[in-house]
């Protein structure tokens, strides 16, 4: 067990190098000249050639590719992602609060999604094939096929403007979480709830259930056992939900003016603020990777059968 965990954790190291290298290569493939972007972003109305040369040396952009990569990697390890082209502030300082907000939203979403999908999964598995099961499935199916920005905008319009119940956008109190979380988690729920429902149904046919039932074990207890066994497959998926949602909040953040990573990234795309995009890719890919490993370990702990494989 311990070996497995250590082995799994050690895979982070090569992954880190690959991820960082790809993030670095991407920025260097970009067709726009970083120096020009920087000068332009600072509102210098007239950019002269001397100014460009000067800035280039100042930023160390005149050095060869590999040297720049190693320097950059060294900085990244020390949590220095460079300076934003546009605001001239350290990228880390800009990304960290945004990361916090995105994390909050992703966590809120994950919690709501997990609770909702477990609840609906159990209900639907119990009443499998009946109206409530079919209804819930169809409803969630359609909701998850609706563009989130569309529901989001309609929801703002209805709940905030027409009913004036909730704030339209931004962060602040818990009420700000309601709309984005509702819109997002209901979409994700469609996927997770079906997973739980299906694995519950599969477990219902297992011998231990038949045996328990025939022994006259109470239905409540039987369901509990079924649930415990069927949740295992969902756990790994839930571990991936957090990074998945962090990456998936982009549109929602823009609709609800949530000051998170997605919004920062989109505005950086418009401003060609490459260091921020780079840091965004690096951070999300890394957390994706970490949660993936975390998910594997949790699954292994829960299910000893898988450990040997």
């Amino acid at each position: 067990m311990r070996n497995y965990i250590i082995r799994r954790i050690l895979t982070i190291i090569p992954m880190f190098f690959i991820i960082s290298f790809i993030s670095f290569v991407l920025i260097n493939l970009s067709p726009s000249d970083p120096v020009e972007i920087i000068l332009r972003a600072n509102g210098v109305p007239v950019v002269t050639e001397e100014l460009i040369e000067e800035t280039k040396i100042e930023l160390g952009l005149d050095q060869p590719f590999l040297v720049r990569y190693v320097n950059w990697l060294n900085d990244v390890i020390h949590l220095d992602f460079g300076k934003s082209y546009v605001t001239q502030q350290p990228v880390f300082k800009m990304i960290s609060p945004a990361f916090g907000y995105t994390m909050q939203l992703a966590l809120a979403n994950t919690v709501v999604t997990i609770m909702l999908s477990i609840f609906l999964g159990i209900i639907c598995a119990q009443f499998e094939g009946r109206m409530i099961d079919r209804g819930t499935r169809s409803f969630l199916f359609i909701i998850s096929a609706m563009p989130a920005f569309w529901i989001g905008t309609l929801a703002i319009w209805f709940f905030s403007v027409k009913l004036n119940l909730l704030p339209t956008s931004g962060v602040g109190s818990w009420t700000n979480f309601v709309l984005p979380t509702m819109v997002m988690s209901i979409g994700y729920c469609g996927f997770y709830f079906r997973m739980i429902r299906n694995s519950m149904l599969e477990n219902m046919n297992e011998n231990y259930v038949v045996y328990a039932r025939s022994c006259g074990v109470k239905e409540k207890v039987v369901v509990k056992h079924i649930f415990r066994n069927s949740i295992q497959t969902a756990v790994a998926a839930f571990c991936m939900a957090i990074p998945g949602m962090m990456a998936g909040t982009v549109v929602i953040e823009n609709v609800f003016a949530w000051p998170g990573l997605g919004r920062l990234c989109v505005s950086s795309i418009f401003n060609r603020d490459l260091p921020i995009i780079q840091a965004y890719v690096l951070i999300l890919a890394l957390s994706y990777c970490l949660f993936n490993i975390f998910g594997d370990i949790v699954t292994a702990v829960l299910n000893p059968k898988l450990r040997k494989a």
């Binding site: 905008t153 703002i156 319009w157 905030s160 403007v161 339209t168 956008s169 931004g170 823009n254 609709v255 609800f256 003016a257 000051p259």
Partner: peptide, 12 residues
């Protein structure tokens, strides 16, 4: 406040 231009600002 930083709000996206257009509908978000209008709604706010």
């Amino acid at each position: 406040k930083v709000l996206p231009a257009g509908q978000t600002a209008q709604l706010a």
